[in-house]
Every structure is written in C-alpha cells, then in structure tokens.
C-alpha cells in the first residue's frame, strides 16, 4: 500500500489515475473482457448494416472500425490476462469506493426522474443531497449553496439561452411568462 500514492492522480490529465504499469488492477480483466464482448457485438451489428455489399456501403467504415476494436480489445485482454493481479489494491477501496457508487446511483436516479419530476425539483434534490453528503455541513449552508447554484444555472440556461429543460411538475413556462409580464409592466 505504501508504494502507491493514495492520491492516485499523478497530475497528467489523461493517464491512469493509479495502479502500476505491470500489474493488473482489480476489475481490469473484467473490463477488458467486457470491451471485447461489446466490440464483437458491434462488429456483428456493423455487418448487419449492409454486409459486404459494396465498398461505399454505409456499413463499410463501421465494419472496419469495429474489426479494429475487436482485434485491439483481444490484444489488451490477452495482455491483461498475463499480468499478475495487484494485491495491494482492492475493488472496494481503489476502484469503486462507496462515494463513487453513491454518486453513480444519484446520477442514474437523476436521469430517471428528470422527465417526470422536471429539471428544477430533481436538480434541487440532487444538489442538496450531494452537497450535504460530501460536505457534511449545516443544513442552512447546504440549502443556501445548492439553491443559489441552481438559481444561477437556471437563469443562464433557461432565461438567457432559452434551453427548455423538461418542466415536469413545475409550471415553468407560466412562471417565465409572468416574469416577462412583470418586466413589461415595470418598463411601461
């Protein structure tokens, strides 16, 4: 354990956030096999687009690229298989700590409820839960920071850029219209 920097982020932007080059990280083999399987499915799917109909068929480039994916994924899987497992790391602590699982679940839940509940309620709940969980500060602070951040985001995207996030249960369009009428009244 001492050998590995607990920070795991060596400052490069795009490289491995941890692990050692010649050892297999927990779950790495499963991931490599998953990629191999997925690539094979995609290759089969690409073949289904137009088969070997013509060089110019819409399936030509997809087949070529997915074939490359299968080959490279197989090479990676083989190499990973041959590497010894890094015994200093565990899946639970180094790859998928509880915080990450909690957030992954939060994000998926966000996606699921976005359409039914609408952007404002879901985002408010998400921010409050997330900030409280991570920061463990007082409720007043949590609520203040989350709602302020949400308000700014909403103003920029909804009012300035007219991005219509799903309104859900909130009568957003009516609110905006009322806001505009208010401005209108003020201006005249």
């Amino acid at each position: 354990m001492q050998k590995i920097d607990p920070d795991h982020h060596d400052g490069t932007s795009d490289a491995t956030p941890g692990g050692e080059a010649d050892k297999r990280r927990p779950g790495e083999l499963a991931f490599a096999l998953f990629l191999l399987g997925a690539s094979a499915i995609l290759l089969w799917n690409a073949y289904g687009i137009a088969g070997f109909e013509a060089l110019s068929s819409p399936g030509a480039i997809p087949m070529a690229t997915t074939a490359v994916m299968v080959v490279t994924a197989a090479m990676v899987a083989l190499k990973t298989l041959r590497m010894p497992l890094d015994s200093t790391e565990t899946l639970r602590r180094d790859i998928l700590p509880l915080t990450v699982i909690v957030f992954a679940v939060l994000l998926v839940a966000y996606g699921l409820f976005l359409r039914t509940l609408g952007f404002l309620p879901v985002s408010a709940i998400f921010l409050i839960v997330a900030v409280k969980y991570l920061g463990r500060r007082s409720w007043g602070w949590t609520l203040g920071v989350s709602l302020a951040a949400l308000a700014i985001t909403w103003l920029i995207f909804r009012i300035v850029f007219s991005v219509l996030m799903p309104a859900g249960i909130v009568p957003e369009a009516e609110m905006v219209q009322a806001l505009r009428s208010l401005f209108q009244g003020g201006a005249q």
Binding site: F103, L107, S123, F126, L127, A130, V131, L134, A149
Partner: peptide, 8 residues
C-alpha cells in the same frame, strides 16, 4: 460543492 456543480 464543486463536484456536484460540475455534474449539474
């Protein structure tokens, strides 16, 4: 605060 905000 930063992490939830980036996600949102």
């Amino acid at each position: 605060v930063l992490i939830p905000l980036i996600m949102l």
